[in-house]
Design a protein around this nucleic acid. Sequence first.
DNA 1: GCCGTTTTCGGCCCGACTGTTTTCAGTCG
Length: 582
Amino acid sequence: MPMRNAEIAAAMEELGTLYELDGAVRYRVLAYREAARVIAQSPVSVEDLAVAGRATELPGIGATLQEKIVALVETGEIPSAAKLKQKFPASLVEVTRLPGVGAKTARRLYDELEITSLAELREAAAAERVRGVKGLGEKFEARVIAAIDRLGEEGAPGRVLLSKVLPAAEELAEALRDHPASERVTVAGSARRMTETCKDIDLIATATDPTALATALTAHPLAAQAGTAGESGARIVTFSGISVDLRIVPPDAYGNLLQHFTGSAGHNIELRERAVKAGLSVSEHGITELDGGDVARYASEAEVYGRLGLDYIEPELREGNGEIAAAAAGELPKLVEVDDLRGDLHCHTTLSDGRNSLTEMAAAARGRGYSYLAVTDHSASHGFGDHVTPAALWERIEEVAAYNADSKRRFRLLAGSEVNIATDGSLDYDDDLLEALDWVVASVHTSFRLSGKEMTKRVIAAIENPRVDCVGHLTGRLIGRREPYDIDVEAVAEAAAANRTLVEINGNPNRRDLSERHARLAAEAGVSICVNTDAHGVDTLGNIVYGIATARRAWLTKRDVANTRSWRELLKLRGRQTSLLR
DNA sequence: GCCGTTTTCGGCCCGACTGTTTTCAGTCG
């Protein structure tokens, strides 16, 4: 069983903390944290890279970490970590994860009170023994008890899916914009970067009467709890449990603050490090010249980036993944937009498990300004009583033809199917039926636990089938609920590029599959990507924003995304002949 | 521990908040 990048990253994170407990210099600890971040974000197997001696190609990984990763994947253990665990129990690492408790505090608790775990810490705090430690008092005891108890509760603060966060963020921002005291209000933070999940909502505003605007937030119907509203802003928790931070700032530094609070941390760190080399210090308050001390404040982000010699960087790119170097070189991509799309190539109707009819879906797609919609209900072996028999699909093809026969419409329905890929890579309709379809999406819906080798072979067999136009939700992951199945995305991308088979970014906010990292890898391998919703009703065609968000976070341009083209151009791209071209 | 349009050694982002402190260390984003 290969080791997942997330496991390797967790081991690096743990080792960093063990070193921190051991009193290592700060920068060594930071190096492990940064390495963990880079490993977790790698689109390719870090185990494979390390075994091939190539992990040093990742930024922040040098010879030492390369060697440690090899030891980890080959023996299941890093010698230096094992040694440190003799010195400190591994459960002490958990103590450092408690909010407000870091390695320094955990170490002191261990040295002075022999506390080795969260349970022992809670007991000591309850017995008022912690206040005997220098620098820690009553408030600390109360705080750690509350924090430990919160860990055990249901719905402990975690990351929330963007589709839960974004509507609330926009509703609150809109309400604040409507307030007479407000001037500008922008959603910042990870929601603005359109990450898959968010920890909280950050709102940045300017106002003629800051306290009045802050009070308006605390009084909003979404607020379940509210802190005190002041000149600098307010904080609330929504009924759905999302914390919201409103920061009200002076208008002349709005650009600096918005840039700062949009992040990400990695992006901001890299930005500031680069600025220091140019003799500038960047903070949320302005850009200071290191000699002379002149502070420049900017009302817009574009001016902030401009002062640093950079092109404006779209929020979706601000992850510290090369965007700053690209901005300095004037080589940022022009990112694909929702309005670039001409159609959606994956959706369902009541024929399988959708909630709306063929004509209702068509009307909704036309309403969005699309010029085509591929209707791809599930196939013959789908199960759940939602399968589509060959006879029913032949009938559907006729239905689509009848719809399209009305030539007054500048819109075309595409007769399609989302066909199951069997474990041997075969499909569950006969070739003549597949041949009669305009658009075939092939997806894995069964036997997720195949070995990586078998799963890769299975999907590549479908890719090589000339009747397959596109692979659906390639890795099968459900964000926060189901891990992706084991599959070699690099090998799949290579096969897809060679066969001119498309791979989709599924815009269902639970999936976003391809992930942004896999999508970037696939596009660089020459794969044509399409961005689809997999909508099961007219209401979820709007999920295209999440698919496009992933495409943008993958650095994709309009040219990289196949369904920005007309249906005719798309067919050419596929190298497929159908009745439409005759 | 990493890294190099000053460097293979000597640097390595910035500020706010908190609680415990009489001036600051630790933690966080």
